[in-house]
């Protein structure tokens, strides 16, 4: 099983296959609108705009499992992202990332990169997974890791090192 075996639902309700992101470098993030880390949207968007032409895709998955910090529906989330942070990277429907109802994509990501305590559980909003062009989950970043720092790891993957 690889990352391209999963289907995801976009924030406007369209079901798409992860195969559409084949040959791209992916930064997959569970996001929330009312979190202390929410300003990271600005850094993620800047990273995406800087490297999207060279194949970087930032994928945002809203999740309400951490402190009830993503209470709105998809329409509210989309409006917030575009108005406040001018987000243009792909956003997806709200999902769960932990527990029995966790989205299969996140079950895969968690088992591929288990994180610092080795449990695999996502600790909070804005945990990030960096995926290479061949679908390998290369790195997992804590919510405190800023997008600006992650940019350094992205550069060799998109071929500008």
């Amino acid at each position: 099983m690889d990352i391209y075996d999963f289907d995801v639902r976009t924030i406007d309700g369209r079901v798409m296959s992860m195969t559409e992101f084949r040959d791209h470098v992916l930064l997959i993030v569970n996001v929330a609108s009312r979190c202390g880390f929410t300003p990271q949207y600005a850094g993620l968007e800047a990273l995406y705009r800087r490297h999207k032409d060279r194949g970087l895709r930032v994928l945002g998955f809203p999740c309400d499992q951490f402190g009830h910090q993503e209470p709105g529906d998809e329409a509210e989330i989309r409006s917030f992202c575009s108005t406040t942070y001018d987000v243009t990277f792909p956003m997806f429907a709200k999902i769960e990332v932990n527990g029995g109802n966790a989205h299969p994509l996140y079950q895969f990501l968690r088992s591929a990169r288990k994180g610092m305590l080795g449990t695999g559980v996502i600790k909070w909003n804005f945990t990030k997974f960096l995926v290479g062009r061949d679908g390998t989950v290369l790195q997992r970043y804590a919510p405190t890791d800023m997008p600006e720092r992650i940019g350094k790891d992205v550069l060799p993957l998109i071929g500008t090192a």
């Binding site: 300003p39 949207y41 600005a42 800047a46 800087r50 406040t84 942070y85 001018d86 600006e148």
Partner: peptide
């Protein structure tokens, strides 16, 4: 070039510039 605009500023200030982040923030 490379500056971004966010509308996430709260409180009394109408705007703020973050030079290192190359970011302009406005109070919506």
């Amino acid at each position: 070039s490379g500056w971004c605009v966010t509308l996430d500023l709260k409180g009394m200030a109408a705007g703020r510039v973050q030079l290192l982040m190359r970011r302009v923030r406005y109070n919506l």
